[in-house]
Amino acid sequence: MALLEVKDLKVRVEEREILHGLTLTVNEGEIHAIMGPNGSGKSTLSHVIAGKPGYEVTDGQILFKGEDLLEMAPEERAAKGVFLAFQYPVEIPGVTTMNFLRTALNAQRKARGESELMVPDFLKKVREVSKSLNIPQDMLKRGVNVGFSGGEKKRNEVLQMALFEPSLCILDEMDSGLDIDALRIAADGVNALHSPKRAMVVITHYQRLLNYIVPDVVHVMSKGRVVKSGGKELALELEESGYTQFEDAA
């Protein structure tokens, strides 16, 4: 079943069109990779799916589980199972990671009509997941991402993903800034979440990540459109030849 359907999406930022009619379908259980040169609109697409303000959708639609995503506030999208691991996660001084995680998880559960998670159950879950991601407990007592290294910020995004159990995970350059060991740990974390009901969209510049998180479909984005889709071998091809062959197609 189609989890996410982006149809002929046109998006403007500050009067300038960035996405020029983008179409993408992601089914339950699938892993998709999106590759493409800097500035081709990958983060823009992920932001529009997450509901970030400042983007004007002038045409097209986005359906999530058949529902019109663009009609929903960002928090509704989160509660329904959309999760974006940000390319640049923000720092929130004064809000401890632990407090943030619990508040966010309970807000999502409340929106879905579920009961709050009991503190011991919550703590147990956080401890399990952070251990598997090699995140020290005292990091969770600090402000969200405050003083975290680039790699720690990315792992913190994966931690949230594991905790919130979304059905659509969009990972925007999760691999940037990660050393080889950290990359493997984070990728293992993502793979552990892979299930027949959950889909992943992995935005990356490097084929290396896709050795760990093996995609079913690879898309090439250029100048605000998907210009080619194929199997995982497409990523290898790109590594060889670069993006120039697609510049004209766009």
């Binding site: 928090e75 996660p89 807000a107 929106a111 919130f164």
Partner: peptide
């Protein structure tokens, strides 16, 4: 926005 994207209402 970060907080809202994680499910917190405004």
């Amino acid at each position: 926005f970060y907080l809202k994207a994680r499910g917190l209402p405004e």
